[in-house]
Design a protein around this nucleic acid. Sequence first.
DNA 1: GGAATTTCAACACAATTTTATATGATTACT
DNA 2: AGTAATCATATAAAATTGTGTTGAAATTCC
Lengths: 170, 170
Amino acid sequence: MIKLSTKGRYGTRLMINLAGHFKAGQDAVILKNISDEEDISIRYLEQIIIPLKIAKLVKSIRGAGGGYTLARSPSKIRLCEILEVLEGSCCLVECVDDSDFCRRTDSCAAHEIWAEASRVLKDYFDQFTLQDLLSIQEKKKAQARSHGSLRPAGRTSCGQAHRRRASGAH
Amino acid sequence: MIKLSTKGRYGTRLMINLAGHFKAGQDAVILKNISDEEDISIRYLEQIIIPLKIAKLVKSIRGAGGGYTLARSPSKIRLCEILEVLEGSCCLVECVDDSDFCRRTDSCAAHEIWAEASRVLKDYFDQFTLQDLLSIQEKKKAQARSHGSLRPAGRTSCGQAHRRRASGAH
DNA sequence: GGAATTTCAACACAATTTTATATGATTACT
DNA sequence: AGTAATCATATAAAATTGTGTTGAAATTCC
Ligand code: FES
Ligand code: FES
């Protein structure tokens, strides 16, 4: 699938959410809040936000009245930064970053392709800041409203994996 | 990482290998051969080649003297086809293909981005045929020879995962 | 016809990574 | 002190990434 991991997907939504609150003037949002709004488990959000904090994309405020907030304004944070922090890098294969990963790169045609594809993808993600994503979101919301095409439930959201839940009680 | 799975990587190398033999006029290559040349387990190759056969990208010939061969000439097989067969699709997230996967796509900014990024990536992979990859490979080999920059071992190859093998005998 | 070679099918198994959930300690505000 | 929040581990379920085995079916060669 060449799939984006859930960390990348959830993390992006987490950051978009924080960006929204940032714009609204709030300075600390608690994870419970984000968890409710985005329908992602708090426990998982706690794990996802750690690398974002280490990378100084978000700031944490401990104790009562604390929470998280963006470390910079949404227009100063690029999607590419978020993904690199959460996915390790935007590289499609290890040997693009780590030349020791596979020998025979001298004769491997695929290596060229993966490397260039990684660059193409990175360049694409580098175009967008959180501010851009916020703008897209607002435009979409306005469109959905005017269009009157409200989805029935609208509870869960992108990247959500709680679909096949056949395993019963656990 | 937005990583390409091993199936995509190994499968691409498998196809490049078949393409090489196809060009050389051989009409059936046995997996043992590919396994030795590419340093990928036969058992795993057997699993990987099944979808390629179903998708009619390779033909199988049973019995003694049999093996596998490309179903079409290398110039008629695009990298994108191979990856779509092995990775399910080139989509970065499920909701791009499956609109039921996540609700709230109406207001999800990320959805737009993932969808467009998937298209960018697919377009990139669509550029190359197996013939192109063969040409790249030959050019690289020639370069490596003339350059005299032979790597010490040169045994294993791209996408190979046999690195940290600390778990002892098994 | 029989032996050898090869794909094909169906499992069982294990290591690792991904994807989460659970529990409790730590910090800071009131 | 009490509460609200982050922070730190531990654990578990599931998917990915393989390897191993056993045999059946098809085809070639002798
Ligand atoms: S709706 Fe699927 S990514 Fe957000
Ligand atoms: S050398 Fe790493 S992909 Fe081939």
